[in-house]
Amino acid sequence: MSVDFWINVGVLAGIYGIFTLGLQLNAGFIGLLNFGQAGFMAIGAYAVGLLVVDFGWSLWLALLAGILLAVIGGLFVGISSLRLRSDHFAIATIAFAEIVRYVLQNAEFSGGNQGVLGYDEEWRTLSDWALAKLALIGLGDYTQLPLFIAVWLAFLVLLAVLIVLQGTPWGRVLRGIREDEDATAALGKNVFAYKLQSLAIAAALAAVAGFFVALNVTFLYPSVFDPTFTFFGYAMLVLGGFASYGGVVLGGILFWTLLEGTRLFDTALSAGQQASLRFIIVGFFLLLLSRLRPQGLLGNRAEMRVRP
């Protein structure tokens, strides 16, 4: 029981870790306030669900299509809104995420609040095969373990790719733009193109996270992609530290342990009150950390000065 619980916490930490890698790439490394990440995640997840259920695509092909669609969404948001001031851009991205959620909730094609069901057969097959293998080493009882392994494998691979990328001249241009985009443009760098790339990659990461969310919840409904989840991502970012991909791992583990860990305590509170309390805790995290340690727990103060 308890092991299953912690495996599930690990799954969530990994999924939202992938999701937050994108936010780190945007907010931490190029200084772009993307608050629409949940919208990109929804696009990715629903593309997977609908392509498999309604069009009979293979799950894996649908994953690629979902990533592609999220990237197109990212390019669309970026091309239309990147010229806005940073706070207006942030509001525009939130509005984008709300529109995505709203459309999914109300349109015919997405099944509305009934959601999408029955897209994960191929995953179940793979998962059962993996469970059979795990049974050989005595771990066959933990049904979520294959998902945990898949999520963390993807998380760590993507993490490694991003860390390598950040060390290249490409990554250096991103940091230059974060520090001072005018000065970087004056040195001959196409700031818009880099911001667009950063946003598109973040959208792709959100789509991968969305894929795993789809596998985890087994049926898709719009409130799974409430824009509030973008705020969860930022809470992880503040916890782990800005401008540090390693910080995303730490932030993810800490955040979900603290958030889900509250379920382990027996309190006199009703279920609803406990749910409220979890969000209040997230709110206090954001308030306290952005006040006391704006660069995050692992963040580098000199690198990530918080500036106007």
Binding site: T168, P169, W170, R172, V173, R175, G176, R178, E179, D180, D182, A183, T184, L187, G188, K189, A243, A302, E303, M304, R305
Partner: peptide, 22 residues
């Protein structure tokens, strides 16, 4: 307008032209 959160060397390298790695 130096890029304060980057090293002096990175400030210089960022300015290099014709860097395919960008």
């Amino acid at each position: 307008r130096v890029l304060a959160g980057m090293s002096v060397m990175d400030n210089m390298l960022l300015a290099a032209r014709n860097q395919p790695g960008e």
